[in-house]
Structures are given as structure tokens and as C-alpha cells.
């Protein structure tokens, strides 16, 4: 589904990603962990198409298409979704209007008809319940005046509405209390299918108690320095990241 080869990316002439490789197959959940400044959020931003970053080398294929050639909205159209670490407040733009346009833009991209009003409302209700936001989005602007937890739930709600093939969760767990964390994890688990995949970027192991990954990767200084089964996360939690730097036998 996603194939990243030797990806190098910079921001303002500072190289952040220094030759990153990653393969994600349908049905998988990958966790990417790593210390602050290792490039986790840069990876998420580059994949979603944020303009601030310059890709200097490497190749990213998403379902056979060259992802880096696509505009952010085209990436969404292809089925990529980024749950933002810091969801943006957009005063005056209504949640519902925005979501409807998002769904219809993606449908248009795929050559499909616009969603019927009734179907849209039904879906909103269903997915709101999924993330525990029932009735709290109508008549409000996108993320405006939302608490930290509400913003993150709203990201998962949008993900559920758009039903992407690959969702990247960029530190969705940061700043969440345990109940919100469980809700977010439940949302992800219910959306999990054989034909979609998730990349969960996190600083802490605790989210992975609820979203169980198939593979855990450790990102350090712009490269994946270790990959392993879910137990790797526990090991990291226990030992921290420093032991990896001294480990001669790092494998990518």
C-alpha cells in the first residue's frame, strides 16, 4: 500500500529525514516511536503534502502512485488521511459544511456522485456516536473553542467520515486523558479492516495498549533504526531511547 524508499526531507535547509524506508501493507497497523526531534511529525507532514518541507531525495509510492507528485487534496482523494497533532481552528467555517465539502471533493476526485443529504446526516450521526461527540459538532465552527480532547476526537470523527485507505495519526494521544485515549483507540479499532492500514505516530507506549500494532518502528535522527513486534514498544518504555544509539547492530 505504502512504500517509502530512502526519503530525505529538509525544512529551511536543515535535513530532518535522512534516508527513511518503510513498507506498509493493507490490514496492518504500524507504530512509529522515537524521541523528540527524530522526525516523526516531519514524516507525517511530508506524506500529507505540507509545503514547508522540501523533499530532496527518495521515493514514495501509495497504491502504485507517486505520492510526492500529488497535491494534498489529491492525496486525500487517493485515500490518505492525516490526523493532525494540532488540529487547526477555522472560525466561521461550519463543521458540517466543511465535512460535506470534503466528502464531495473526494467523491468528485474519484468520479463519483455527490453524497445525498440524508445519507450524509445518517453517517454523521453514526460516526459521531463512535467517537463520543454526539450532537457536539452541529452549529459550531471547525475546532473553534474545542477542548484538546474534542479536537482529537474530531480528527478521528473526520477519519471515520472519510474512510481512508491509509490513516496517519500524528501524536493523537498527546494531551489526552485516559478516557479520551480509549475513545480514540476504540474509534481506530472499529475502523480497522483487511483493506486499510494505519500509521500511529506516538511518543508514549500507552496508546499501544489500546491500538495494538503489527510492527513498531523506532525513528531516530531521521532514520528508522529498529523495527520489531509490539513488544518493542514495551522495551522502549522501560529503557528509553538511548540504548539504541549505542547499539551497534541497528537494523532498519
Amino acid at each position: 500500500m505504502l512504500s517509502i524508499k530512502n526519503l530525505k526531507a529538509s525544512i529551511e535547509d536543515t535535513e530532518i529525514l535522512k534516508g527513511l524506508d518503510l513498507e506498509v501493507k493493507p490490514g496492518e497497523i504500524h507504530a512509529i516511536m522515537g524521541p523528540n526531534g527524530s522526525g516523526k511529525s516531519t514524516l507525517a507532514s511530508v506524506l500529507a503534502g505540507r509545503e514547508d518541507y522540501e523533499v530532496t531525495e527518495g521515493d514514495v509510492k501509495f497504491n502504485g502512485k507517486d505520492l510526492l507528485d500529488l497535491e494534498p487534496n489529491e492525496r486525500a482523494g487517493e485515500g490518505l488521511f492525516l490526523a493532525f497533532q494540532y488540529p487547526v481552528e477555522i472560525p466561521g467555517v461550519s463543521n458540517m459544511n466543511f465535512l460535506k465539502q470534503a466528502i464531495n471533493s473526494i467523491r468528485e476526485y474519484k468520479g463519483e456522485d455527490a453524497i445525498a443529504a440524508k445519507e450524509f446526516l445518517k453517517k454523521v450521526k453514526e460516526k459521531q456516536d463512535l467517537v463520543g461527540l454526539s450532537g457536539r459538532l452541529a452549529n459550531r465552527s471547525v475546532n473553534e473553542g474545542f477542548s484538546g480532547g474534542e479536537k482529537k476526537r474530531n480528527e478521528i470523527f473526520q477519519m471515520a467520515m472519510l474512510d481512508p485507505k491509509l490513516a496517519i495519526l500524528d501524536e493523537t494521544d498527546s494531551g489526552l486523558d485516559i478516557d479520551a485515549l480509549k475513545t480514540v483507540a476504540d474509534g481506530v479499532n472499529q475502523l480497522r479492516r483487511k483493506d486499510n492500514a494505519f500509521i500511529v505516530i506516538t511518543h508514549y507506549q500507552r496508546l499501544l495498549d489500546y491500538i495494538v500494532p503489527d510492527v513498531v518502528h523506532v525513528l531516530s535522527e531521521g532514520k528508522i533504526v529498529k523495527s520489531g513486534p509490539k513488544e518493542l514498544a514495551l522495551e522502549l518504555e522501560e529503557k528509553g531511547y538511548d540504548w539504541l544509539k549505542e547499539d551497534e547492530g541497528v537494523n532498519a
Binding site: G49, R50, N73, L82, V88, I90, V93, I103, S105
Partner: peptide
């Protein structure tokens, strides 16, 4: 703008909404 586009809105659509 980036946020709206990452949800599938075209640049023109996102700007229009804003």
C-alpha cells in the same frame, strides 16, 4: 488551507470556504 486540503478540498474550494 492545508488542513482543509488534507481533507480533500481543492485549493479553490478551501479558499472559497474561508
Amino acid at each position: 488551507l492545508f488542513y482543509l486540503m488534507s481533507r480533500g478540498l481543492t485549493k479553490a474550494g478551501a479558499m472559497g470556504l474561508m
